[in-house]
């Protein structure tokens, strides 16, 4: 009987364990590198400088093929993100233009972008994107970290994981070899090389640094409310822990005389 009573905990653990197993059931055979990110853990916060650098790499390199349709420029200045100054975000946005509405002659009107606009799309359509990339569609990056198992470690590993030497038994044709990509043959050419960008804050732009910053930036982009979530979680859990102690004392007191 006692075994059964105490098993409730094991039961919880088992079910949770099993459900985690569900997700790990189809990972790549290659173990992701874990450089360690500041946002990990229950009190983790984003490294704002890294987010800023990550945005720079995205806008100078990744954005030529990959869109981020869920993000607006205004997100860049919002708390819990890269927190660019508002003025700077206006400036960044105004560097792009968009066709929006019509003039009085019914001709499409072009205007420069505002902070409220979404990030510009690299291609007009999915077909155009495929056409420009040998039939492979460069996925939207807004949610890529959530859409991949162990997302940020995977992206970090993938971005710095390109290898020149292709295993002898592999024929990958036009594709590139990257052991972190499932199957090893990836349509994306190696995007980052030493000094692909010149960081505004003077950080040396090594492949490792850029991969790290991009992984950081894309993690934020996948869930801009993460810092708020963890902060609120701490308050809620703290309240509940105090509450649960009081409740436990109440139950013990109440049932003391029940035999």
């Amino acid at each position: 009987m006692n075994i059964f009573k105490n098993n409730i905990f094991i039961f919880f653990v088992l079910i949770i364990g099993l459900s985690m197993n569900v997700n790990s059931a189809e990972g790549t055979t290659f173990k992701n590198l874990k450089p360690g990110f500041s946002f990990e853990g229950p009190f983790g916060k984003f490294d704002k400088e890294s987010l800023k650098r990550g945005y720079q790499v995205y806008s100078e390199v990744c954005s030529s093929c990959h869109g981020m349709k869920q993000l607006s420029f205004r997100n860049l200045s919002q708390p819990g993100g890269p927190e660019f100054p508002t003025e700077m975000v206006k400036e960044i946005a105004s560097g792009y233009s968009i066709t929006d509405g019509f003039n009085e002659y019914g001709e499409p009107l072009e205007r420069s972008m505002l902070p409220s606009d979404r990030f510009p799309k690299p291609y007009g359509s999915k077909e155009e994107a495929k056409g420009a990339n040998n039939g492979a569609y460069p996925p939207d990056l807004s949610l890529i970290v959530k859409a991949r198992l162990d997302g940020y470690n995977y992206l970090y590993s993938l971005l710095k994981g390109y290898e020149e030497e292709i295993p002898e038994d592999m024929d990958i044709g036009d594709l590139s070899y990257n052991p972190w990509y499932p199957g090893g043959a990836i349509a994306m050419y190696q995007p980052l090389y030493e000094d692909s960008v010149e960081y505004e804050d003077g950080t040396p732009a090594t492949v490792d640094q850029m991969s790290y910053d991009v992984a950081n930036f894309l993690t934020w982009a996948a869930e801009p409310t993460m810092e708020e979530r963890k902060r609120l979680g701490f308050i809620v859990m703290g309240f509940l822990i105090i509450f649960v102690i009081l409740m436990y004392l109440s139950v013990s007191r109440l049932f003391r005389d029940v035999h």
């Binding site: 997700n23 229950p42 963890k230």
Partner: peptide
Amino acid sequence: FLLMFCYFIFYNPNILGHPDNYI
């Protein structure tokens, strides 16, 4: 029970779902 529920909500909200559903 809520404590466990809140752990998932605040600290591991996507572990019980499948990554593919964010595609």
